[in-house]
Design a protein around this nucleic acid. Sequence first.
DNA 1: ATCTGATCTCTGGCATACCAAATGCCATAA
DNA 2: TTATGGCATTTGGTATGCCAGAGATCAGAT
Lengths: 243, 243
Amino acid sequence: MPARKQTKAPPVMAEADIAIVRIAPETSFKNKAYEALKEAILKMDIYATPEQVMLDERALSERLGVSRTPIREAIAMLEQDGFVKTVPRRGIVVVRRTKTEIVDMIRAWAALESMAARLITTTARKKDITALRDFFKDFGKDRLPQDHVEEYSKANIAFHQALISLSESPVLVDMTNDILLHVRGYRQLTIGRKDRTATSLPEHLAIIEALEARDTELAEKRARDHTLGLAAYVEAHGQELFS
Amino acid sequence: MPARKQTKAPPVMAEADIAIVRIAPETSFKNKAYEALKEAILKMDIYATPEQVMLDERALSERLGVSRTPIREAIAMLEQDGFVKTVPRRGIVVVRRTKTEIVDMIRAWAALESMAARLITTTARKKDITALRDFFKDFGKDRLPQDHVEEYSKANIAFHQALISLSESPVLVDMTNDILLHVRGYRQLTIGRKDRTATSLPEHLAIIEALEARDTELAEKRARDHTLGLAAYVEAHGQELFS
DNA sequence: ATCTGATCTCTGGCATACCAAATGCCATAA
DNA sequence: TTATGGCATTTGGTATGCCAGAGATCAGAT
């Protein structure tokens, strides 16, 4: 049997505890392009422009100062995300979802969030649950959400993301984030509506209460019904948004 | 007012009803490579091999007979799916999920499936719901699932997919399919276990009954609890699968 | 025999060139 | 004026080639 090379305890020097942080991985152009394009697509308010939005590989590569290769890889990733659709020899089109698709996504969101609520009742710490109220501390009887729609809208999203995070389930977090990215596009035009905003805050507080009470079934139900309510709202009032 | 060009009835010739079928879109090498690699990864039984499985761009391009470009694009897509992770200058590694991640995924699956069940009680047709029983028509008191684990396992997956499909929600269908692809890898080693298989069939039938009764809450609960049961099972007995 | 480091090799990242199909423009014929 | 056919252009698809960093290898010094 050949001598096995000693692999244990070879520390010649104390491996100085200088905070070595694994150096910067320097993200590739591919990833930079992906992030840049994703952000650009998300902020372009797709549902506001009447005609189809197209992307051009060569134009993008010039704009970003890199060759087409990393751009194409980024496009391929975005296509997996469902943000764009490339048509051979025709172009790359930014996908517009129909109202039905959006409602569908919101329902999935409701499913995931209600599961998060369920998990939270059994694992989250009391203080973390209570901290969820802070997102709405700037609103109350003397400062109604419906009078500060834009601000409330941001608090609303932040609340939902914080809620899901409390589940400590990476999968639930990632999936809902993906959905939010798709839904966010016209969120300003729907969730922002005053009539719905008014009922939103009380529902959120009710969810928090159920979580604090560790009432699994009730928390799940409230979380689900709250988001399903949004789905129903969009289904009923979102018609005008989709030409 | 300028004369509007006549767009109606310009048929110069009868547009011969020769069966023109829109020709074949001939999927690109990029997509072919994506499908090929995905299938290869799914059937390689990742959790069976002890050492990390690596992929090599050049080797793959030779094997598939195409250049590296479409291969790289396919890899980028697979990375978005979470099947592989490319490490610069090191290689492309096929991702192995931890037990915790798998349990987490199954919980998300439970959330989505319970929402599907909920929707089904309000929209699906009676005959379609009843048809779900067909997946298990080959099993019964005289032919127990636990005695034909492999066969039952396939029926099991088919049942769940058919169930979700009945919700007529493309989003729920796609998301659960994605999850199933990740979970399927070691499914054979867990769901296949006899002790769990025995309780599976009755639970499935109970779900179908609730759906037929149009009992939204009950159907949702049964669907959720059934899949959460699998999650709990994996969490408790799946330890040995993850080295 | 072991440690050091120069070098060779392997691997993904990126740039570039060329291809082919889908369009659009435009000269030309009816 | 209008319909038609062909050519130039546009756009994504694919193939190649070179680069740089991370390891592995191996010779030389201690």
